[in-house]
Design a protein around this nucleic acid. Sequence first.
DNA 1: ATCGTACGTTGTACAATATACAACGTACAA
DNA 2: TTGTACGTTGTATATTGTACAACGTACGAT
Lengths: 249, 249
Amino acid sequence: MSTATETPKPHLLELLWRAAPETGRGPRKGLTVDEVVAAAIGLADAEGLEAVTVRRLAQSLGKAPMTLYTYVPGKAELVALMLDSLFAGMDPTPAADRPWRERLAAVARDNYALYRAHPWAAAASPSRPPLGPGQCAKYERELRALEGLGLDDVAMDDALAYLLAFVRTAAQDAAQSEAERASSAMSDHEWWEANGPLLAKVLDTERFPTAVRVGQAAGEAHDAAYDAEHAFAFGLERTLDGLGALIRS
Amino acid sequence: MSTATETPKPHLLELLWRAAPETGRGPRKGLTVDEVVAAAIGLADAEGLEAVTVRRLAQSLGKAPMTLYTYVPGKAELVALMLDSLFAGMDPTPAADRPWRERLAAVARDNYALYRAHPWAAAASPSRPPLGPGQCAKYERELRALEGLGLDDVAMDDALAYLLAFVRTAAQDAAQSEAERASSAMSDHEWWEANGPLLAKVLDTERFPTAVRVGQAAGEAHDAAYDAEHAFAFGLERTLDGLGALIRS
DNA sequence: ATCGTACGTTGTACAATATACAACGTACAA
DNA sequence: TTGTACGTTGTATATTGTACAACGTACGAT
């Protein structure tokens, strides 16, 4: 005991930057952190983040469940690693020397595409992802799309965070509405057949005149009650307009 | 058997509108749906949504866990009921006959206040909440803030959804960063002491010049790495500017 | 007034989760 | 050569949501 050299559990940052101090004692490692993370991403892409359990992941790697805790301290850290790996693997559409609106639109669309390709990421991604190498490269690249517009450094960060939050939410909503549609086991027609009568009784135009009118118009315009792609397109224009007003001032 | 009158499980809409057909057979009910929902909201407010387990909730109502399934078909439906109850209980700041920007700002701030008071709601709230009485009243009221601006019905719905999505995300991010700070058990100072050296080594200004410069400026401006209230204020202005551009056209 | 039955209530049970703990064996450092 | 640090794994625990069946209550029909 005494003042023994306690290994204080690997910090998340060390994991993200792969800066763990290797000692070389004991049996050979059968895996690497990257293999574990890659397998987890594959599993999440195929079956969703809730399918990424320690057991499933270990099975897909041919190891016992507890083995994974050698590579990753816990599930939260695993998700952080998965996210940073995604960010590191983005290939951005080049848009330098284009007008600012195109540059920012490209940033937005790249992020949207990423989240649509990996729907679990939008839900898992916190507002400020941990400072891994992927996140840092992404931050650097995206900030450059905002330079030369007369914004000071703080405003650049604010503007980027604002844009990215919009994209993340839009992608999350899209994925969610898609998942609901897939898992509902009820077609729109069946749903209306089941719930239409009650809704008609309860949504009288006396109490909710505007809601009924607008809701019906919106429902007919998009043929679903909620068209996620349209919401993204609409929101992107508004967001860029809003940032444009800031840039002009 | 034969063609017995199967009670096909209460639909969510019937629950939301409290339109369950009462039969009056069997023992008296010891609770009401509203009591269950109110207790669940209290529990979620006090300890977060993850504390709302069937067992805890039943205990706080003095019943056995399985009893709750008499009132609510499952946990998902319970959360929907909790949300609609929250929406029904909002008291909006009156802002009729004010300029449109003030009206929309009031809508945004009312929603933000709701989500800040009940942090679990921002995370639980889907993009399109189920059509309960609370949600309908809220939709009606908020749409009225958008009337008379020259927007057609579809654009009104788009604009409202855009504004509300921004608010929900901002509140969610705020709650999350607050929760992280509370549960970290590490002060900002301690965090920097532990992770500063590695970060300094890894974030060299060669690879990430813009990121380091802007990140440092942003970190110093808000004294935390992420100031949620500032992000909301900033984003609200941009969002209203963006909608303003739509309204003018 | 009586009695069958619909329905509220509850105890037990199950599958699944993350992960703590301790035993086992490997392979490097001394 | 040997001690020990460390990778691996089986077992175990505390949670979760909820299915199922037993039990008893009180209304509707007779």
